[in-house]
C-alpha cells in the first residue's frame, strides 16, 4: 500500500494555482499499482540532484510517498535537472490522478 502526493511550484508563471496531485495505489488496477511501485522505487533510489543555479523560470516538483506504517519519503527535482525516471513518475501521477 502506498500513496503519493505531488506538489508543483515555480515556473514562468509561478503564482498560478497548481493543485496538488494525489494517487493511492488502492485506487489503481493491479497492473497500474505495480507500475506505480516500480516507478516509485526507481525515483526513491536515485541520489539527490543539485538544482541548476543558472536556471530561470524552471518549475520544482516534490513527490511525497507515504506507507501505512507512517513512513514517508520526499523526492524533489526541477525542470532543469529532472531525470527520465522522475518525468515518467510525474506523468503517471498526473494521468492517474485525473482518473481517480
Amino acid at each position: 500500500m502506498m500513496k503519493a502526493t505531488l506538489a508543483t511550484w515555480g515556473g514562468l508563471a509561478p503564482l498560478l494555482a497548481t493543485p496538488a496531485v494525489h494517487v493511492d495505489d488502492a485506487d489503481l488496477s493491479k497492473e497500474d499499482a505495480a507500475t506505480f511501485r516500480s516507478l516509485a522505487t526507481q525515483v526513491k533510489d536515485q541520489p539527490a540532484r543539485p538544482a541548476n543555479p543558472r536556471a530561470r523560470d524552471a518549475r520544482s516538483y516534490e513527490v511525497t510517498f507515504e506507507t501505512p506504517d507512517g513512513a514517508s519519503t520526499t523526492v524533489e527535482q526541477t525542470d532543469a535537472t529532472m531525470t527520465p525516471e522522475f518525468a515518467d513518475l510525474l506523468q503517471f501521477l498526473r494521468r492517474h490522478h485525473r482518473r481517480a
Binding site: 541548476n52 543558472r54 536556471a55 530561470r56 523560470d57 524552471a58 525542470d79 532543469a80 506523468q91 498526473r94
Partner: peptide, 16 residues
C-alpha cells in the same frame, strides 16, 4: 519537452 509540459524556461545555456 516532456508531455503536457506547462512551462518554458532558460536553463543557463538554452531555451526549453
Amino acid at each position: 519537452y516532456d508531455r503536457d509540459f506547462q512551462n518554458a524556461y532558460w536553463d543557463g545555456e538554452q531555451m526549453v
